[in-house]
Design a protein around this nucleic acid. Structure first.
Length: 737
DNA sequence: AGCACGCCGACT
DNA sequence: GTCGGCGTGCTC
């Protein structure tokens, strides 16, 4: 007999409506489902799969519809995960259903094939198989005997092939229904914690571990910021903390930036934690991903390594969360829900009573500020291994170069000299030019027209090797017009130099050198990036030129020169993080020089060589940079000294977007109570994108929860007046472009 | 986000 | 006369 008080279920559905919906349990449901169960429900004219997130005592105003079915396999989200996804929904202003969707492995496309694979097997009865049917027995073993079921797509192809035979023998049953759940099995005993211990820690590492390991053993929430230069051995600290955590019987979550999940790191971790490791990354493919996720949920894997979305990995008994390269921009998701993986990681650790360990050579201002204020404990990892000296950095004044040479050339004389010396000494060089293509814009010297995108307010980039003009914002491609489209003058001038042109200049300046380019245009497919880096590592390439991609990846001991072209380009962007970004990129790429036995050299070309950010980067002085930058943020009330929400209102018609933005601003002003700082509405820095005009509002406040609450209420207030699809809300944006 | 309902142009 | 364009509004 059903309890009166639990007749109605509150269901979160994956639609961008920020509320839940109430359903009746329906008399034909066999058992009362638990919280976190996935349910198929009628929703408008269609059916959706939602999640039970609560119970209701009274019916809604509109007659509640019954839940159609409960997907087998029990609840997909435990109470901790329900709570975490609720936080994501409330804080990042998306629906609970959307947050849950982001926390689960991606569902297959709704193709007939995918639908077939979404079936699940249930009711496997063990025993009674002929002893010789090995393959069939293996397949059967993959299916839980308790009848809780397993998703068909979670089986290997070999196991899947045996399904018809097993069904024929009446040993298993195929249950239809789109579902990503599998049952939670009891933890497997005897999982190796650390198959092979790592090298003995250095003195600096030992000092850090002396603070860190007791905290891990204690098993309560604490946050640490591990601050140490590239090559100072942060990874070894993470791995030792992880081993300690596993020994204490708790699980480990290890987050890396998208690009940081290199085979090298994975194999290093796998070597030591093979038996208990699960790697979640975007390259897995749905099947493999679902299978890995299920293994984590069943408790067979207690150590998860992955990028942003792995922050939702279904680990229980979480004891340690590592966020490597915590400053990295790829932790922020640029679609709904626009959550920040690092920040969610900290919240998850706090809720789980776990240690969170953020690591960086150039911490985000947010994290370093927390370390200064005492919210995080700062762990400084000292200098580089073996006390190697920092690279020598030179800044070349490109205005002076231009005056002396009389024309604009991508490579200064000093840069060419340094490159020749480097190659002459059998060294390798990295050249950073953070702009792809041949020329960033084409302009007509006769009428002053600049060739820009028809859908965006941006110049088109000339990609000479592809023979195309490309918009880097929307991807639009056009052939080279030959003559000016406006005045038909037949000679368009190229402005600036992207990686393609730099590559060309390098070939000219360094005849015989083996030069390769690495940017999104040359490393398209999966693995291409890694392959190119490996060739460079093996010494098959002398000079590698590319975008910021070359600043990441692993160590190259033979690199003795790093060149940076137009280093101050990004400082001119109308974004409060421009300085921070530039400093991080320069420091990161400079750290690539001289990691082996030979001293490194860095040559930076800039038009404003005296810029303080460049000076800080040149001296690789993070704390001076931090103090300067934090002072600027304090004065202008930018994060981390204020919380910031960016609201962009978009529409094909400029005036309409402007009107809507104005009504949102009015609603915010009604909320403000003198505590909010409003900027705008004003046209966004990129005024038009994909044919839509954009108007921007920045809202700032000292208190983040107050800010999010006010924005939430204001957006609810304009519901009906402003279409939901026109509004993009970004809480804690990483950039306001 | 879907999906249906609803009101104005080129076609069997 | 209808098929269909996508603006508007709702989903327990």
């Amino acid at each position: 007999v059903r309890e009166e008080a639990e007749r109605y279920a509150s269901v979160a559905v994956p639609v961008p409506v920020r509320r839940e919906f109430t359903y009746t349990l329906g008399a034909e449901l066999p058992d009362r489902p638990s919280l976190g169960s996935r349910v198929r429900v009628p929703f408008g004219a269609r059916k959706v799969v939602g999640t039970i997130v609560g119970w209701e005592e009274s019916p809604p105003e509109i007659a509640a519809k019954p839940i159609e079915s409960v997907l087998p396999g029990g609840p997909v989200l435990d109470p901790a995960m329900l709570s975490l996804t609720k936080f994501v929904a409330d804080y990042y202003l998306c629906s609970w259903g959307e947050a849950i969707e982001a926390a689960l492995p991606p569902r297959g496309a709704a193709t007939p094939r995918a639908r077939r694979e979404a079936r699940r097997l249930a009711g496997a009865r063990s025993d009674s198989l002929p002893g010789r049917a090995v393959a069939m027995r293996r397949a059967l073993e993959a299916i839980p005997a308790d009848g809780s079921g397993v998703a068909v797509h979670a089986l290997t192809p070999a196991e899947r092939r045996k399904i018809p035979a097993l069904v024929g023998l009446g040993l298993v049953e195929v249950v239809e229904g789109i579902d990503r759940a599998t049952p939670v099995l009891p933890e497997r005993a005897g999982t190796p914690i650390e198959a092979r211990p790592g090298p003995a820690p250095s003195a600096a590492q030992a000092a850090v571990l002396e603070t860190l390991l007791p905290a891990v053993r204690e098993g309560a929430y604490r946050a640490f910021l591990l601050y140490g230069a590239t090559g100072s051995g942060k990874t070894e600290v993470y791995l030792r903390a992880a081993a300690e955590c596993l020994r204490a019987g708790r699980s480990v979550l290890y987050l890396v930036p998208e690009i940081g999940l290199t085979p090298l790191l994975v194999s290093r971790i796998a070597e030591r934690f093979s038996g208990t490791l699960a790697v979640l990354h975007s390259g897995l493919g749905r099947t493999e991903r679902a299978r890995t996720w299920d293994a984590v949920r069943r408790g067979e894997r207690r150590f998860v390594v992955g990028a942003r979305s792995a922050v939702f990995a279904p680990l229980t008994e979480l004891g340690l969360v590592v966020v490597d390269e915590e400053q990295d921009g790829s932790y922020k998701q640029d679609e709904r829900p626009r959550y920040h993986g690092r920040d969610v990681a900290v919240v998850r650790a706090r809720e789980a009573g776990a240690v969170v360990l953020l690591g960086s050579a150039t911490p985000s201002l947010e994290s370093f500020q927390h370390a200064r204020s005492g919210r995080y404990t700062l762990l400084a990892l000292g200098g580089r291994f073996e006390e190697r000296p920092l690279a020598k950095v030179r800044i070349v004044d490109m205005r002076k170069e231009y005056r002396e040479v009389g024309e604009v050339r991508p490579l200064s004389r000093e840069m060419i000299r340094a490159l020749r010396e480097c190659l002459g000494e059998e060294g390798q060089a990295l050249v950073l030019r953070n702009r792809r293509g041949w020329a960033p814009s084409l302009y007509c010297p006769s009428c002053g027209n600049r060739i820009s995108c028809t859908r965006c307010s941006l110049a088109l980039t000339w990609h000479r090797s592809a023979g195309l003009l490309r918009c880097h914002a929307c991807g639009l491609e056009r052939p080279h017009p030959g003559a000016c489209p406006t005045c038909h003058h037949d000679e368009l001038r190229e402005i600036g130099a992207g990686t393609e042109k730099v590559e060309d200049s390098l070939r000219e300046a360094l005849p015989g050198a083996r030069i390769e380019r690495m940017d999104r245009d040359t490393v398209r497919g999966r693995g291409a990036h890694e392959a190119l880096l490996r060739r460079f590592d093996r010494g098959e390439i002398d000079v590698l030129v590319g975008t910021q991609m070359i600043a990441k990846g692993h160590d190259f001991p033979n690199v003795t020169l790093v060149g940076v072209l137009t280093a101050d380009q990004s400082l001119g962007l109308p974004d409060f993080r421009a300085g921070e970004r530039t400093f991080q990129l320069l420091t990161q790429v400079a750290g690539r020089a001289g990691r082996g036995s030979r001293p490194g050299r860095v040559v930076i070309q800039a038009f404003d060589p005296a810029h303080p950010i460049l000076r800080d980067a040149a001296s690789q002085d993070y704390e001076t940079f931090f103090d300067r930058e934090i002072a600027y943020r304090r004065v202008l009330r930018y994060p981390p000294l204020s919380a910031l929400v960016q609201i962009v209102v978009e529409d094909e018609r400029d005036a309409r977007a402007a009107t809507w933005a104005a009504s949102i601003a009015a609603a915010l002003r009604a909320e403000e109570q003198g505590r909010l700082l409003l900027t705008g509405p004003s046209p966004a820095p990129i005024e038009r994108l994909r044919g839509r005009y954009r108007h921007q509002i920045l809202v700032r406040s000292a208190g983040r929860m107050r800010l999010v609450g006010a924005v939430d209420r204001a957006l609810r207030a304009v519901e009906g007046a402003v279409p939901r699809t026109a509004i993009v809300v970004d809480v804690d944006p990483t950039s306001v472009l």
